Computed example of a mutant assay.
Amino acid sequence: MTTHTTSALPGGDIPHVGPHDLKALSREVKALHARVRELAASDRLEELLKIIPRPGWTTPAEFELVRGTVAYMNRQVAALDEAQDMLLKGANLVGART
């Protein structure tokens, strides 16, 4: 079983960053990238796929709880993908001459 490591930012907190601390911002971006890569490389969902077909695994209520959580997680991944696109597009526009 894969163990989940903690966020590169202790407690998931957003660290205090002074104005225009570009090095700190770069560290935060690198930490985010590492965390997303770690999540993608995790085998936790593969473990779930092994559990689901077990005979008598779930009641209808438990099924709905798991199904709803999977749907929620899919929406969160889509939102993160969209946010990443918006961030990069916005960052490219900063300082751009029109």
Score class of each variant (00 low, 15 high):
T2W: 01
T2G: 00
T3Q: 00
T3C: 11
T3I: 13
T3V: 02
H4M: 11
H4Q: 12
T6E: 15
T6I: 14
S7C: 10
S7A: 10
S7W: 03
A8V: 03
A8L: 15
A8T: 13
A8C: 10
L9I: 11
P10V: 00
P10I: 06
G11S: 12
D13W: 11
I14E: 07
I14L: 04
I14R: 05
I14G: 05
P15L: 02
P15T: 04
P15R: 03
H16T: 09
P19N: 15
D21N: 07
D21K: 00
L22P: 03
K23Q: 07
A24D: 00
L25Y: 05
S26D: 13
S26H: 14
R27H: 06
E28A: 01
V29P: 00
A31R: 03
A34D: 13
A34Q: 09
R35I: 08
R35C: 00
R35Q: 09
R35H: 09
V36C: 11
R37F: 13
R37T: 07
E38M: 06
E38W: 00
L39H: 15
L39N: 04
A40D: 09
A40I: 08
A41R: 11
D43L: 02
D43A: 09
D43F: 05
R44L: 05
E46F: 01
E47Y: 11
E47H: 12
E47F: 13
E47Q: 05
L48K: 10
L48A: 12
K50Y: 15
I51C: 13
I51F: 14
P53F: 05
P53H: 01
R54Y: 07
R54S: 11
R54T: 14
R54H: 12
P55V: 08
P55M: 14
G56T: 07
G56R: 02
G56W: 12
G56F: 14
G56V: 02
T58R: 15
T58E: 03
T58Y: 01
T58M: 02
T59G: 04
T59W: 06
P60T: 04
P60M: 03
A61E: 07
A61P: 00
F63A: 08
F63P: 00
E64K: 06
L65K: 07
V66E: 00
R67M: 09
G68V: 01
G68M: 03
T69W: 04
T69G: 09
V70Q: 02
A71E: 10
A71K: 13
Y72P: 02
Y72K: 09
Y72S: 13
Y72M: 03
M73I: 07
M73N: 11
N74V: 05
Q76G: 03
Q76I: 06
Q76T: 08
Q76H: 06
V77R: 13
V77L: 14
A78N: 15
A78Q: 13
A79E: 12
A79C: 10
D81A: 10
D81H: 06
D81K: 15
E82C: 10
A83V: 12
Q84A: 12
D85I: 06
D85A: 15
M86K: 12
L87D: 03
L87K: 09
L88M: 14
G90T: 09
G90L: 05
A91K: 13
A91N: 03
L93T: 11
V94F: 08
V94P: 01
G95I: 04
T98I: 06
T98M: 15
T98E: 09
